[in-house]
């Protein structure tokens, strides 16, 4: 009799242990958060707007990025993984897996169209999925498509290792235009109010990029070059302020929509990402593994997070 009990007990433990990886701490539906995606220790750490940790999701898979899909789902992908996983935040459970093939560089979710766009550097393409994860179309682009932004039915894709930006119709995934940009461009932000699109970048060869190219949103013509410090690649905006992180100079710039610098400050070590939650600006320092909360250009809070914070995701409810 005892043997049977022991056996059942062991079986139970095995089942529980087996399930452990499938379920993470749940995130309340009504909780606003900023999530930091770390890639040196693959994980996502959730913080409330006050910078308090809500939950940590540690992964065994080498995820390199994530995207929020609507309010309650998060899609996790990895450049060396051949599939992307979608988890439900409120339950912490994995909902589905999408076969993407190796080489996923970025995932972009378009809320109005309710479509997921996945850029791939192996096939040099962008693939569209509906929000249920069903594959719709695939379009081959230039060398190494990565950064993406959308406006008015168009998807703007920056080809990282190329000198062209691709403008794609989101409805049918047809290429509409190609505009010249600098090589190693990364980071894209659309300012509809000014009818411009801002393109950041690392710079080519040994020369670090020190400006943001401003293109006309309709024609793609270069209309301005905004001088910044070094390697502006992370953008975030609210109604009237654009925040830019310069990872080469460890600086955060605040600008108006026309590109006039409001203020700048040194923050973090090698920051790749900036985000806004409520009235706080959050910067992730990749080298010092810290998140910085700023208000009116002043650091209000510094918190250690998992190693290699690379991306910030924000949900406001």
């Amino acid at each position: 009799m005892n043997y049977i009990k022991t056996f059942i007990f062991l079986l139970l433990i095995t089942v529980i242990a087996g399930c452990r990886d499938e379920k993470f701490s749940s995130i309340n539906h009504h909780q606003s958060f900023v999530a930091s995606v770390s890639i040196l220790e693959p994980s996502v750490t959730f913080y409330n707007p006050l910078g308090e940790e809500i939950a940590v999701w540690n992964f065994n898979k080498a995820y390199t990025g994530a995207a929020l899909i609507q309010q309650d789902r998060i899609l996790l992908y990895g450049h060396q993984l051949d599939e992307a996983d979608i988890y439900e935040l409120s339950s912490g459970k994995k909902l589905q897996t999408i076969k993407t093939g190796i080489g996923t560089t970025n995932v972009y979710y378009e809320e109005k169209e309710k479509k997921i766009f996945i850029a791939n550097s192996e096939r040099n393409s962008v693939t569209s999925y509906d929000d249920k994860g069903n594959k719709l179309n695939e379009l081959e682009l230039r060398n190494y498509p990565m950064s993406m932004a959308s406006y008015n039915g168009k998807l703007y894709v920056v080809n990282y290792k190329d000198t062209l930006l691709s403008v794609v119709n989101m409805e049918n995934l047809k290429l509409e235009a190609e505009w010249p940009i600098a090589k190693s461009s990364n980071g894209v932000l659309i300012i509809p109010e000014e009818n411009t699109i801002w393109i950041g970048g690392h710079g080519e060869g040994s020369r670090p990029n020190q400006s943001i190219d401003v293109l006309d949103l309709q024609t793609g013509n270069l209309v301005d070059k905004i001088k910044v410090s070094m390697m502006p690649i992370g953008f975030s905006r609210n109604e009237d302020v654009v925040y830019i992180v310069n990872h080469g100079a460890n600086e955060l710039y605040a600008m108006d929509l026309k590109g006039n610098t409001l203020w700048k400050t040194e923050v973090g070590a090698n920051p790749f990402s900036v985000a806004i939650i409520e009235d706080e600006v959050v910067v992730a320092g990749y080298d010092d593994h810290k998140l910085y909360f700023l208000k009116n250009g002043q650091i209000t809070k510094e918190i250690y997070t998992n190693k290699g914070p690379f991306q910030l995701l924000v949900r406001e409810v």
Partner: peptide, 16 residues
């Protein structure tokens, strides 16, 4: 002091 030389762009792929 050039961050390009210091591999500051990793984890982005560097063709340099």
């Amino acid at each position: 002091r050039n961050p390009r030389e210091l591999s500051a762009c990793v984890p982005f792929e560097i063709d340099y």
